[in-house]
Design a protein around this nucleic acid. Structure first.
Lengths: 149, 149
DNA sequence: ACTGTTATTAAGAATAATTCTTAATAACAA
DNA sequence: TTGTTATTAAGAATTATTCTTAATAACAGT
């Protein structure tokens, strides 16, 4: 399943504004790469983004995908999902939520929060420096992997 | 600062027991590598472990460090710290705690929890599968990096 | 203690993910 | 339309990690 085109288009407008604000050029590569991450629900890795983007921009290079994902991250338009795997995975959802990581297949699922479940910053966290963000990782075996064993 | 020798020795006994229980051999490499992680407070990466271990076992190979860290992780004796960096970092502390990750220098700090601060599993988390563990990452700029700018 | 079995190791080659280098291209300001 | 310069494609290079192979050593059984 993918996020609706309406929501994705709104996010692309936001990207364009953010680019202009920062003096960055609005290139088709940037738009298409961001759209891939924004519309996907599976927190794709660089390779998955590359494969999808290639359908629209067949000459895209792997380097452009990596470079663009890094710059989108710098802009705060996407986030890297903390995982313990060699491949980085990306998420364009800025609203507070957590992740369920399957230790077997590496799949990442979004955990929606109940109203009262927003995380409190641990009392001792601020002792170490200025906090930028915070997120909770739940690790386990996903339902798909459970049945496939 | 490092963990006290007394605590570390206790952990090494636990490692030996765990090895025997699993039919794994108690080799000097395994002990020394585990001791490095157990006594360190900085969540060392494989390279840091390798450099320290080499002082005691000059012929140790990089591969042995990687292989041993992976097997210690399988045994549940150490954990990989989730980070967004290419180098994996390890932690031998099994008590519940969180991490402050500096996005600038990559340093990892332990966040001790107040008594009432234990994490609740998010209501929707279990929908995705069987939960193994859970941890909170706080990201920001550490004090050291703040002053060095 | 000795011996055989087999897990573990060292060494270095191989791999996988990512980043760098360079010259060409294209966004966009003027 | 043009010039400036950020961005790109291509492919080489790098970095962290894993694999392959033959040698070594832990330890169970004698």
């Amino acid at each position: 399943m993918q996020h609706s085109e309406e929501i994705v288009n709104k996010k692309i407008e936001e990207l364009k504004n953010e680019c202009k604000k920062r003096g960055m050029r609005v290139t088709p590569q940037r738009i298409v790469i961001y759209r891939e991450v924004a519309k996907s629900c599976v927190h794709p890795d660089a390779e998955a983004v590359y494969e999808s983007v290639k359908k629209e921009l067949p000459n895209i290079s792997f380097d452009t995908v990596y470079r663009t994902l890094a710059s989108l991250e710098d802009m705060g338009m996407i986030f890297r999902v903390d995982n313990q795997l060699p491949k980085a995975r990306f998420d364009a959802d800025k609203t507070p939520h957590h992740h369920f990581l399957c230790v077997n297949c590496g799949e990442v699922y979004d955990i929606k929060l109940e109203d009262k479940e927003d995380l409190k910053i641990p009392a001792h966290a601020a002792e170490f420096g200025d906090i930028k963000d915070m997120n909770l990782q739940v690790r386990g075996i996903c339902n798909k992997c459970k049945t496939n064993k």
